[in-house]
Amino acid sequence: MTWHMDDGLATRYADGDLDATLASSVEAHLLACAPCRELLTPRVPRARLDRVWEEIAEAVDSPVPGPFERALRLVGVREHTARLLGAASSLRLSWISAGALALLFAVLAAGETTRWGLVGFLALAPMLPVAGVGVAYGRGADPAYEIGLAAPYPAVKVMLMRAAAVLATSALPALVIGLAVFGRSWAVAAWLLPALALTSLSLVLSRWFEPAHCALAVSALWLACVAGTNLGEPSLAMFGAAGQLASLAVTVVSCALLAARGKKAS
């Protein structure tokens, strides 16, 4: 480098008063010369630089939403709500797809065309949302749980919103698997009410116990019922009219209790 800019040249470059060829020289020089670049710093209004920096800081800091969160935004969920939902581990794409895969393999392993296969599917499908809800909130699952308890945003609301999201995201793959494996028949939807019953029951219990434990207990109870009605012969007793009615009753009572709790919290 044999020459450097002086203040005059810097001002003229900054003001656009240099002819194209000379400006090109200056620019080529600038790429290699830090002191001359520095000469230009005072030629740009501080306020303008600060304004641009604020935008950069915002873009750089803003959390990058995961695929599930982006999907929520697409269907109209507001940004801050989507954030709260997306923070739950069972509302990540990895968990949702793992649950669906587990269900698929379990059904295929049971032999999809036999009645055992159908019973197995109907017994397992409701446990998917229960497990998801069990790890979606609470002290064990949510590291900021204790902080959240002292925050104005109602913890019950977070719990219910996440439970609803888990139900929706686990019902969809279960329905698809059911339709794909068993074809169109009433049976592929027979697990829906039991799923609602089990999930709402475990939500009610989580008032007193750790949500993951509630999910485990409710699931165990469910499996015991299904196994009890299936001794020897595969039977769909749990999913017949009586079973559905019982599920409905559990769901209604649980939801009433949850609603009462939600009202009290807000």
Binding site: P63, L84, A87, D142, A144, I147, G148, A151, P152, V158
Partner: peptide, 22 residues
């Protein structure tokens, strides 16, 4: 205090800020 370990510092504080109704 627990932290979502996969969160960035900003993300975590932002998460709590949402809980604080911002």
């Amino acid at each position: 205090p627990g932290y979502h370990r996969g969160f960035t510092v900003f993300e975590f504080v932002d998460y709590v800020a949402i809980l604080k109704e911002m």
